[in-house]
């Protein structure tokens, strides 16, 4: 039960109910679509990247609490970051939700750390990382929709 409470913390439920940066982005120059065929979660990410810096980013789509909250928190966290910083954060975030960050010196991910509870639910890791995989696709401008499978 406490693991379940760790997973569905208030902050996560809040971001699911009222996601930040939700909707289309006017003037976006990078897009990617993410899809999780397991549960049908789908999201579109739009970014405005100028000189290697993420000026603005927004997302749309339908998803579970974990994938929606993760996208919401991610878009908050990445505003004003460089592409290189974003990619580094992806690595740290992945380590956080898969529980592989224990040995290393922990890198602070701020509010994103609320998603650490996912590590106790291996089948939900894909939900938490969907937005991030989509981000990588957008930064590398992969034309195909990315899939978590």
């Amino acid at each position: 039960m406490s693991e379940l409470r760790d997973l569905y913390q208030e902050l996560i439920v809040d971001h699911y109910r009222r996601p930040h940066n939700y909707g289309p982005l006017v003037g976006a120059n990078r897009h990617a679509e993410g899809f999780n065929p397991l549960c049908g979660d789908r999201l579109t990410l739009s970014l405005n990247v100028v000189d290697g810096m993420i000026k603005e980013l927004r997302f749309e789509g339908v998803g579970c609490a974990i994938s929606t909250a993760s996208a919401s928190l991610m878009t908050d966290a990445l505003k004003g970051k460089t592409e290189a910083q974003a990619e580094a954060m992806f690595q740290h975030f992945q380590a956080l939700v898969t529980g592989t960050d224990k040995a290393e010196a922990p890198v602070s991910l701020g509010k994103l750390e609320v998603l650490a509870g996912v590590r106790e639910f291996p089948v939900r890791v894909k939900c938490a990382t969907l937005a991030w995989h989509t981000l990588l696709a957008a930064l590398h401008s992969v034309k195909q929709p990315v899939s978590t499978e």
């Binding site: 549960c39 639910f121 939900c127």
Partner: peptide
Amino acid sequence: GIHPHDVGTILDDAGVAVRAGHHCTM
């Protein structure tokens, strides 16, 4: 207000095995 996947996880925690998804019938 609750995605089926989240219902599935919470049921699983209670020991209940259900399926959450499109059931191969999109």
